[in-house]
Design a protein around this nucleic acid. Structure first.
Length: 595
RNA sequence: GGUCCGAUAGCUCAACUGGAUAGAGCAUCAGCCUUCUAAGCUGACGGUUCGGGGUUCGAGUCCCUGUCGGAUCACCA
């Protein structure tokens, strides 16, 4: 049963009976902790129909609901707020509907398909902390959409071509001495990254040198030999020079095997990978079509532009005067290609940092101007940067937090703390290693996902490895605790049936509160999708765990002598554990049986 | 300079989209393990919601204005 809509219906009935009128949307909100009740009707807006003061209006509605609705057992009025106490029978009915539904939290298929892009790294260096936020976000939003009944296609576009990879190639050619992942034992993405850094160092030295010889800074930037080599490699690559293409393939290959290992540990996956080298030419044709249609215009030098001044933006170049594509061009092409590959998707979600907000605003506008309906259903999931306590991450200053290193540190720290607590005494070494991984990554993911994606966030390493309070491990721990109860119940052959639920006559306040939170799961799953926000789920999982812990601390389950009530509590505990697990899975976080 | 985003407890974050005395976690202090896992629970302390105006029965939330951060405005990606 849907408690919320049931209540709303009853309230509308009451308003009709009392005042012979209804309102479009009654304002129903959770009751503050300090007052008795679970749901509160805000009565200020109702004074217009009642033509009475807010308190009297509240009392009238409250009386009516107690007498006629069958769901409200009593109420209290504070100012214009009508706090409703529901029947325990109603709460048990709510629980029953959860109890009989093994898919609680998973909404039924809605027949819609959606594409979600995330990750999309450059191939010249390893992933860092910023990528972690991106990947965890994208993965989680995809899972949240699945839970909302969508068929989801996870994709990414890999920026495998361009000057950045040529820089690594140039440095490797000059100083690599045949190094590769095998003979160095280095992860491929890190090896390529090493040469990217190497490039930067040499480049800077060469510039300084040239400036010393009297050259201007701008000219030196262009004339530096290592940069000229990189540009030359890019030119050769575009001309399909076999040797250059071979080196490019080799080095990208190293990066991919490195990324694969990182993705695997992160626990993210993709249905299809798009490569920029395959798609970067695609947009050109569409742009030329747009010129014919008069959507774009050509300048005298041959460059093609779109004029967005009417939309409050600028003019934007789409093809260079030499006819080559820019970033925007290939994004137009890729977008169209994706809708060809997956004709049933109703829209696309781009998980990309907020520094590209302008870019996506322009992209979606252009797609609309080209006449693609689906452009309106494209969404830039824009997230804020991750800052360190020392400020912004800067590669130049070596403050970039490497994704692989960070994950390892989190797992090491989880191991240290877990061992200190003596939690590994009863499990095998193999189980223990799995547990450390689960806790370390759980802490990391939760830390990055608990904050509203739109907001810039601070990554404090000391805080991220905390295992108490508003953290992933706290929730994992609650799950493990409940599982211990379930195991015990199973060993005692305690099984709950619907008939047992019918025999429970009253609930403890702690049960009512916990049940209330449990009943909110599906509405939070919907909200999370609507807001594109895993933070909604993270907050919910925490609330649920916290509320259950209160119940757990308050009521020793196995002390209960009434059999129906005991069985209900076991079933309720199990349903809570299931919901915690599902919610955490929506965040990409696994939960342990023991910890 | 134009545009966009942000500012909430010492710190990190919430606040159901305009509703009650603004809530959590961390930190600090004080309690609770003979009972299902103390990575837990209970309490205390902590606020001019950046400043100033306005709209409203009612504003952290909406409007105007100022201050301070950040992003963006390339024939870069």
């Amino acid at each position: 049963m849907n408690l919320d809509s049931t209540l709303r219906t009853e309230i509308q009935k009451a308003l009709t009976a009392l005042f012979n009128q209804t309102v479009e949307a009654v304002q129903l909100q959770p009751t503050n902790q300090e007052f008795e009740g679970s749901h509160t009707l805000v009565c200020f807006p109702l004074t217009k129909l009642s033509r009475k003061g807010p308190e009297e209006t509240a009392r009238l509605v409250g009386d009516y609901l107690v007498q006629h609705s069958g769901v409200v057992s009593r109420f209290n009025v504070v100012k214009g707020f009508l706090n409703l106490v529901l029947n325990d029978r109603v709460w048990l009915d709510v629980f029953q509907s959860i109890f009989v539904n093994p898919n609680y939290g998973q909404l039924s298929p809605n027949g819609e398909e959606i594409m979600i892009e995330y990750s999309s790294p450059n191939t010249n260096k390893p992933l860092h902390l910023g990528h972690l936020r991106n990947n965890f976000l994208g993965y989680s939003v995809a899972e949240i959409y699945k839970a909302n009944g969508y068929k989801v296609h996870k994709v990414q576009i890999i920026n495998d071509r361009g000057i950045h990879i040529c820089k690594s190639m140039a440095a490797w050619q000059l100083y690599g001495q045949g190094e590769n992942p095998e003979n160095t034992g280095m992860k491929g993405d890190h090896l390529v990254g090493k040469y990217y850094v190497e490039f930067d160092k040499k480049y800077k030295a060469e510039i300084a040198d040239l400036i010393g010889q009297g050259m201007s800074e701008e000219e030196a930037g262009k004339k530096a030999p290592i940069m000229q080599l990189a540009v030359e490699l890019l030119r050769k690559w575009e001309q399909r020079d076999p040797e250059t293409v071979a080196l490019w393939k080799t080095m990208n290959g190293w990066v991919y095997s490195g990324f694969d290992a990182t993705y695997k540990r992160m626990g993210v996956d993709f249905e299809k990978l798009y490569y920029e080298s395959d798609t970067y030419l695609l947009g050109k044709e569409e742009v030329l079509k747009g010129v014919e249609k008069g959507v774009f215009f050509k300048k005298e030098d041959g460059s093609v532009w779109v004029d967005l001044t009417a939309d409050g933006l600028d003019q934007k170049v789409l093809l260079r005067s030499d006819g080559t594509s820019v970033y925007m061009t290939q994004d137009i092409g890729t977008a169209i290609l994706r809708f060809t590959d997956f004709p049933k998707i109703m829209g696309q979600v781009y998980t990309v940092g907020n520094e590209q907000e302008y870019h996506f605003k322009v992209l979606f506008l252009i797609l609309q101007k080209l006449g693609f309906d689906w452009a309106k259903r494209c969404f830039h999931l824009s997230y804020g940067m991750v800052d360190l306590p020392t400020g912004k991450m800067k590669s130049r200053e070596g403050t970039v937090v490497d994704a692989d290193d960070l994950m390892q540190e989190m797992v090491d720290e989880a191991e240290k703390q877990t061992r200190e607590l003596g939690k590994v005494d009863e499990i095998t070494e193999e189980e223990a290693l799995k547990l450390f991984e689960m806790i370390g990554l759980g802490a990391l993911k939760f830390f990055l996902l608990k904050v509203d994606p739109k907001k810039r966030m601070l990554f404090d390493p000391n805080e991220s490895i905390q295992l108490q309070g508003f953290t992933g491990p706290f929730i994992q721990y609650t799950h493990a605790r409940i599982r211990a109860i379930i195991r015990k119940a199973e060993s005692m052959d305690i099984v709950c049936t619907e008939a047992d639920l019918k025999q429970v006559d009253a609930l403890e306040p702690a049960e009512r509160d916990a049940l209330n939170v449990l009943s909110l799961f599906e509405s939070r799953v919907k909200e999370a999708a609507r807001e594109y926000s895993p933070a909604v789920i993270a907050n919910y999982a925490f609330d649920l765990a916290k509320e259950y812990n209160k119940f757990y601390q308050n009521i020793p389950i196995f002390n209960e002598t009434n059999p129906a009530r005991l069985r209900f509590r076991i079933a309720f505990s199990k349903a809570t554990a299931d919901a915690i697990k599902k919610a955490m899975n929506l965040l990409g976080i696994a939960v342990p049986e023991k910890m």
